[in-house]
Design a protein around this nucleic acid. Structure first.
Length: 686
DNA sequence: CTAGGGTTAG
């Protein structure tokens, strides 16, 4: 074997096994032997450095080469791609074109993959047609990459067209198409294709299984998932395959609500990895079992596996949802100690957590410290401002984002529109909505229309709101009708309320929330008979609405309350304080029980009584008992509620904030309410 | 030198 061939083999082995130090030594030896200008060896060097994550060295070799062929260029592109720089690969692709070198199938595959990662179809389409012109389109690897590119760019129909037109399909073609449907959220189609490929004699591999399991997760299809699990075992795949699919398998059971089975799979895998750990931890956490989740997380930390950004951001998201500030802060402290704490998704999830816990200043500080913010970072912040009723600030932030050349996406528009909605900025919202409609790449969704309906409804422009729903190009969903119904209630438009309510009940007649809304409309209008009729229906159908639950954190401990609950050790004191407060508010601000809100609890018998024990009041009572009555300046009491805060409680807290020198921040299912000096930041519309 | 996968932030 020639010396040159020996070096090539050595370099390829370093590349494959990521042996940077040895590769560096081999590089030195190549130069010493006088082979420093050999084309093939230089290509291998570019590849080796790229694989080892040393792009500066890969570029240096590439720049010093006296001749370059298509392999040299493609190797460098792969380096960029594998080091997370898809744009780098694409711009190199363009440069290669202008230097007169023709791409081959490898160049096409690489850059199609890069386009898929960027997720915007323009680049990919160009490369697709380029490959067609140069006769590479139907080379299997290229065609597969085109399918992958289109499905990652949200052009599933293009992907399917390609797939159907392929003269020869291999396993990878099937996998790419199945993954595409799964990604699109069309799990049914994915499973259909999975069956079809087996009918045609194709044997699934680990990638097929992970994709189809993911499809089952999305569908909540436990039966299909279990079948796939079974065939994974009966086909006798080697361990490596089971490991690769374990994360998806556990996640499937988690998403189907079967934690016990998920746990069983986890316990049965000999070789776990960080993904199987994360899937299970987040499963427990999202279910509300934080004790088990955190215990597993501790075990993960103490294990040899590296905690990654996925599990950190996932847990942070759970703390945000449950408003567990203390846990969130502790996790924040932990992220500073681990490398994955620097992940952008972790930073974003922390900003979101602070915002959802009502600590706006902390969120702002953290947001300012993110070195490279992406569209999610900005959207989180805009959403947060919006929920705090800070519409102007949200819009300012949005403009700053545009100034920094960050492209908004559909969620960003949702954040801006809902910020306008919470702050009542109608003119502004119409401007942004028309911008959205004329955006080339973003399609308005029902949720965007719902924001506009909410805005118009809030302004009392109910006819316009109804018109918008009836004329929108999308199929109205339950949520958007609920928005309109609720606006009818606020403005006391009985006629439209009944009309819209009928639509709502036809569409979603088993949701107690809809009946509550209807009975409220009738109650507002004094139609007690109709109100009674609705109540009867709810009883007859046996519908139960989600139980109202509030919580408050006191001395790093969270106390939960359900409506009418009386098993807290301090219950007696809580009721005493609430009674006392009620008296003081009645004297000072003439507060009275608003019976109009009593129907939030359709199952309750006594309205007065049910109001007095709403969970948010109990939580506030406890906070007051535990030192909230000190009446010191700048005292803030934070309360969280799973549903929307009821109107009576809202009035009560407003009164409290006037009687006491306390600021109350209440996060409900919709937004934040900041009560200060007898006023609420929501302007009494919520 | 090349194609496919698992947990994940708004």
């Amino acid at each position: 074997m020639s010396e040159r061939q020996i070096f090539a083999n050595l370099l390829r082995s370093c590349s494959k096994n990521l042996l940077f130090e040895q590769g560096l030594q081999a590089h030195g030896a190549v130069v010493k032997t006088g082979l420093g200008f050999d084309l093939m060896l230089n290509n291998d060097l570019v590849d080796m450095y790229g694989k080892c994550g040393r792009m500066e060295l890969a570029c240096a070799v590439f720049d010093r080469m006296i001749e370059r062929n298509v392999v040299s260029w493609t190797a460098l592109m792969c380096g960029y791609l594998q080091n997370g720089n898809a744009n780098g690969s694409l711009s190199l692709f363009r440069k290669m074109g202008s230097s007169g070198i023709k791409p081959n199938e490898f160049t096409f595959s690489t850059n199609l993959k890069a386009s898929g990662i960027l997720g915007t179809p323009e680049n990919g389409m160009q490369i697709h047609s380029f490959s067609a012109k140069t006769g590479f389109e139907w080379v299997p690897a290229v065609a597969n990459s085109i399918i992958d590119m289109y499905s990652k760019c949200g052009r599933i129909s293009e992907a399917a067209r390609m797939f159907n037109a392929m003269p020869v399909r291999n396993l990878i073609s099937w996998n790419a198409m199945i993954a595409g449907y799964t990604l699109e959220g069309n799990g049914d189609r994915a499973l259909l294709l999975f069956r079809k490929m087996q009918e045609q004699g194709e044997i699934p591999d680990e990638f097929t299984y992970t994709s189809t399991l993911k499809a089952c997760s999305g569908l909540g299809a436990m039966q299909e998932g279990t079948q796939i699990h079974a065939s994974l075992i009966t086909r006798g795949f080697p361990y490596s395959v089971q490991i690769a699919s374990a994360g998806a398998l556990i996640d499937m059971y988690v998403k189907c609500g079967h934690l016990i089975k998920a746990r069983r799979v986890f316990d049965q895998i000999d070789a776990k990895n960080v993904i199987s750990w994360s899937a299970l931890i987040l499963g427990y956490a999202q279910e509300g079992n934080l004790v088990e989740a955190m215990d597993l997380f501790r075990q993960l930390r103490e294990s040899t596996y590296q905690v990654d950004g996925f599990v950190l951001s996932g847990l942070m998201g759970v703390f945000a949802d449950f408003a567990h500030v203390e846990q969130g802060k502790q996790m924040h402290a932990y992220t500073i100690k681990v490398p994955s704490g620097l992940d952008i998704s972790v930073a974003n999830s922390m900003v979101d957590m602070y915002l959802k816990c009502g600590l706006t200043n902390e969120a702002e500080r953290l947001f300012g410290e993110i070195p490279v913010r992406n569209v999610v970072s900005w959207t989180v912040m805009i959403t947060g401002y919006g929920k705090h009723g800070l519409g102007k600030e949200a819009i300012n932030l949005y403009n700053r984002m545009l100034a920094e050349n960050i492209e908004p996406d559909g969620v960003t528009y949702l954040a801006v529109l809902s910020a306008c909605s919470h702050a009542g900025l109608i003119k502004e919202s119409q401007e942004y909505f028309s911008r959205l409609c004329s955006d080339r790449w973003i399609k308005p969704r029902v949720e965007h229309y719902a924001c506009m309906v909410d805005l118009l409804g809030r302004a009392g422009r109910l006819k316009e709101a109804k018109n918008l729903i009836e004329n929108m190009p999308l199929k109205p969903n339950v949520g958007i009708w609920q928005t309109l119904t609720s606006a009818c209630r606020v403005h006391g438009d009985l006629e439209m309320g009944m009309e819209v309510g009928e639509i709502l009940l036809r569409l979603d007649g088993d949701n107690p929330v809809n009946y509550v809304m209807m009975s409220n409309i009738f109650a507002e209008a004094g139609h007690w008979k109709d109100c009674e009729r609705i109540r009867e229906t709810v009883k007859r159908k046996g519908l139960k609405k989600e139980a109202g639950r509030s919580w408050v954190e006191i001395d790093k401990e969270i106390h939960f309350f359900y409506n009418g609950e009386d098993n807290h050790p301090l219950t007696k004191r809580i009721h005493e304080v609430l009674k006392e407060m009620e008296k003081r508010i009645k004297e000072k601000v003439g507060y009275n029980h608003g019976v109009r809100f009593a129907l939030h609890d359709v199952e309750e018998e006594s309205k007065e009584e049910s109001l007095r024990v709403h969970s948010e009041k109990l939580a506030i009572g406890l906070a007051l008992v535990c030192g909230g009555l000190d009446n010191e300046e700048k005292k803030v009491i934070r309360i969280f509620k799973n549903l929307r805060v009821c109107g009576d409680c809202h009035a009560f807290i407003k009164g409290l904030s006037k009687v006491l020198k306390v600021v109350f921040v209440v996060r409900d299912a919709n937004r934040f309410h900041k009560f200060e000096g007898g006023f609420c930041s929501c302007g009494d519309y919520w």
